[in-house]
């Protein structure tokens, strides 16, 4: 979570890794210069924001939605794609973050920084609110995950689905948070920099984690739990870590969403929202971050292109999912995880 500049010492170490690793493996660029790439992405987000006045508001709106969906899909990919746990609760975690951070900026911040704070203070408060939202969502992740991760496949899907629905009912019944009508008047803090900066950090975190000896454990859990345990991997622990990190970023995405749409209501975080994110992960190819990012972009643009068929959007999603599972179970964008031919002996 530290967008800090890599020190020259670390850069040197990273480069010597590149020399030792003679043969290419995995996503090379990311594996060799992860921090440099993160920094570049953060700078690009900043530039994008800097020129956001020159961007057609309609496109800027789509860009924000794309960025938020990237955060959601990439973080869910850690749970569903890499670790192989079928969670249908991502919209639930998103709503926890959205409501929590909105509550922080609306109800807590004014008493902290006064009615007319400086820009710096406002920004600091917003970042704090996002983090608090993410942390509360992460705690929700533990609460849902810890008892239910012993469950396999369908059962876990049902529990996480139930969690999403329960969370909605809870928010609907808190008058202070707007109840069924929703919460209005959230301050407009979200911009292109925050959205794409977070998307960059989220992608970095997931990739850095997975591209480590520690992180290979996530894929081992997905591949074969029995074998993973037999190799000394605490599978329950890995699942919880994936859940917590996934929920954390879903919570932050929720916070960004709330401070962009300026009003949130429980209906916006329903089961179909979770399904949308799951479809992005499946379409992108489970455990293929690049593919998932492309899928998030595609599935945000698609409804825009098909505006005239707006009411059929969900039918389209379902249809896509079915066609995809039948024709390309490895995902639409699974070009890299292709099985290499066996080397000649």
């Amino acid at each position: 979570m530290n967008p800090a500049q890599p020190t020259s010492k670390e850069m040197g170490a990273a480069q010597s890794t590149a020399v030792v690793a003679k043969r290419p493996r995995g996503s090379n660029l990311v594996a060799r210069w992860p921090k440099t790439l993160l920094l570049a992405a953060l700078v690009a987000s900043f530039v994008l924001w800097w020129f956001s006045n020159h961007i057609n508001p309609y496109y800027a709106d789509i860009l924000i939605k794309i960025g938020i969906n990237i955060i959601l899909a990439v973080s869910l990919n850690l749970i569903n794609g890499y670790t192989g746990q079928f969670s249908l609760g991502h919209a639930g975690f998103m709503s926890v973050g959205a409501y929590t951070s909105a509550a922080v900026t609306m109800f807590v911040a004014p008493s902290l920084i006064g009615a007319t704070p400086s820009t710096a203070l406002t920004v600091a408060c917003f970042v704090l609110a996002l983090y608090v939202g993410g942390l509360v969502a992460a705690v929700a992740g533990i609460l849902v995950g810890a008892p239910s991760l012993r469950l396999k496949g369908d059962y876990l899907a049902i529990v996480t689905l139930g969690f999403g629905e329960i969370i909605r009912v809870i928010f609907r019944n808190i008058p202070k948070l707007g109840g069924a009508l929703g919460l209005n008047g959230i301050p407009p803090y979200t911009n292109l920099f925050w959205v794409f900066g977070t998307a960059a950090i989220c992608t970095y975190v997931v990739l850095a984690l997975v591209h480590s000896t520690y992180g290979r454990g996530f894929i081992a859990v997905q591949d074969d739990e029995v074998a993973a345990e037999a190799m000394g991997i605490n599978t329950t622990r890995y699942k919880i870590v994936a859940f917590v990190i996934g929920a954390f970023f879903a919570g932050i995405a929720g916070g960004l969403y709330g401070h962009y749409t300026l009003s949130i209501d429980p209906k916006g975080f329903d089961f179909m929202r979770s399904i949308e994110i799951v479809v992005m992960v499946i379409l992108g190819g489970m455990g293929n971050t690049t593919g998932v990012i492309f899928a998030a972009i595609l599935l945000t643009l698609l409804p825009e292109w098909l505006r005239t068929f707006e009411q059929y959007r969900m039918i389209l999603y379902s249809f896509l999912l079915v066609v995809l599972m039948l024709t390309r179970p490895q995902g639409l964008f699974a070009w890299r995880r292709k099985t290499k031919p066996i080397l000649a002996a």
Partner: peptide, 11 residues
């Protein structure tokens, strides 16, 4: 190393 070190990627 664990989660934090894998993210930080220090020496």
């Amino acid at each position: 190393h664990g989660v934090v070190q894998a993210m930080w990627r220090g020496g």
